[in-house]
Design a protein around this nucleic acid. Structure first.
Ligand SMILES: [Zn+2]
Ligand SMILES: [Zn+2]
Ligand SMILES: [Zn+2]
Ligand SMILES: [Zn+2]
Lengths: 145, 145
DNA sequence: TGGCAAAAGCTATTTTGTATCAGAAGTGTC
DNA sequence: GACACTTCTGATACAAAATAGCTTTTGCCA
């Protein structure tokens, strides 16, 4: 379920994708909505991988986030896989109020405008998260039809 | 401690600023870092206002957020006062890694670019939160000096 | 073989946020 | 005044999200 671009990225970076980390990354890629940490515990439990406790999952998430493979959707306390690991420090997410879907939305104009604006006021950005709430196209169409 | 522009806004909007809400808003305005909900419980307790329980504070925060008087810094699970209530649906925050200061940064170009870009992909934005992490000007100067 | 570091196990605790029901206080109506 | 109605608050309990601290395992290298 994990795209080949992602597995290739892991190999290039020499990342140790242990069974636990693999199951978690797999599960994130299998779903179209953000996944909660405690749901990941359940996933591990069902697959009988290790003896999943909160720390188990949070450590894996921590690793995956540090490697840029996963984003946290702060507004939902949930996680989604990154579609372009290693390619952005500016994360842009679209979160549908209706179906809770969360998509990455990578707009370069937007991403480059942020540091440009901040430079003028002397703020040195390290990373940024944009979370936009609203109605996704599918839900908009469903309502009007 | 609450700026007159804010109290004026409350009057115009006919908002009921009860003692509890006032203490919370006051405290947020007195500080330059985001404040946590349970710290606000403590503030109320020290001022002997009501009998502060979690729900007490969360209800007030909820009210203040709905009125646009307060923003939640999702990445920190903390709250800051809004400097321009009623004037924006796109909230932009600069959070210093070093001193934890969180400032509102209202850039119209940035705010208007977001719906523009999203319109092209059929997403209807309702509200957005941009949280930028990095080093603020003061901390940058302090390091280099 | 011993030492080291990264990963995972394990127990408990802390932090953050809700649900629910009941009481108090204001407001307008009859 | 009696009544419905609304908004705010009190109080108990609980749920959800995340971390602390310590031990054990495992692979690796000298
Ligand atoms: Zn990404
Ligand atoms: Zn949707
Ligand atoms: Zn604001
Ligand atoms: Zn700073």
């Amino acid at each position: 379920m994990i795209p080949t671009t992602i597995t290739a990225f892991c190999q290039r970076q020499n990342l140790e994708i242990t069974p636990i980390r693999k199951v978690i990354l797999d599960h994130l890629w299998q779903n179209h909505t953000p996944i909660k940490a405690y749901d990941l515990i359940e996933v591990l439990r069902l697959k009988a991988i290790g003896s999943p406790k909160p720390a188990t999952v949070y450590r894996s998430i921590d690793f995956l986030e540090r490697q840029g493979l996963v984003h946290k959707v702060h507004a939902l306390n949930a996680y989604i896989p990154c579609h372009h690991p290693g390619q952005h420090t500016a994360c842009q997410l679209l979160i549908c109020d209706n179906c809770n879907d969360a998509k990455e939305f990578c707009d370069d104009d937007l991403a480059s405008l942020i540091p440009l604006k901040l430079a003028k006021i002397g703020f040195q950005p390290r990373a940024s998260v944009l979370e936009v709430f609203g109605t996704c196209q599918q839900c908009t169409e469903a309502k009007t039809s």
